[in-house]
Amino acid sequence: MAELLVFGLFFSFILGLFLSLMRLSRFRLLRWTSGAYIDFFRGLPLLLLLTFIYYGLGLVGMETGLRFLILDPVPAAILGLTMCYGAYSAEIFRAGIESIHFGQMEAARSLGMTYTKSMRYIILPQAMRVVVPPLTNELIAMIKDTALASVITAPELLFRAREKMGVTASPTPLTGAAVVYVIFTIPLIRIAARLERKQGRSGAMAGM
């Protein structure tokens, strides 16, 4: 679970940030490409995506001899999580960037800063604070969705638990797995709620 989570989180946030910047670009082609990507992957069940990447692409790889299409379970799961969660986090980043008052961009530009520098030094640092609570919720969802990787035999928590269940013939391994998930998610749920409350209070001062 840990490696799926760490890599999936890292790559999906990077992908999400790029997609959101493309979505807000003044170039129509970039906006359109990003919008199409986001809509498509938000609309696709992750379970289907994982199955497609692992089994579907694997089959194509074997048929055509394009061996790079045949992925191991863990990389396939990381790829699927990244593609799907990249689309989700893109929308979060976009909302975060758009929540920063346009006067901030104008002030930055009026000081001679380029669009890129204004984004980097002024808009994104402020947007990052705004997106922490929703991204924490993303993290919680992702922790739970790593369980889906068991269908493509990635050795994550649920997969292991089911293996053990076969051996012990008791539901104890499943119960154990449930406890582990909850140990990770409940503190995060609390943290996200607290961050949201805190932001609600200071939100009035944003954009000054």
Binding site: A107, A108, R109, G112, M208
Partner: peptide, 17 residues
């Protein structure tokens, strides 16, 4: 050009961070 032209706004627009 903007480096040569300073601007001050009605709503201050200081960088809050």
């Amino acid at each position: 050009v903007r480096e040569k032209v300073g601007m001050v706004f009605q709503s201050f627009n200081l960088f809050p961070h």
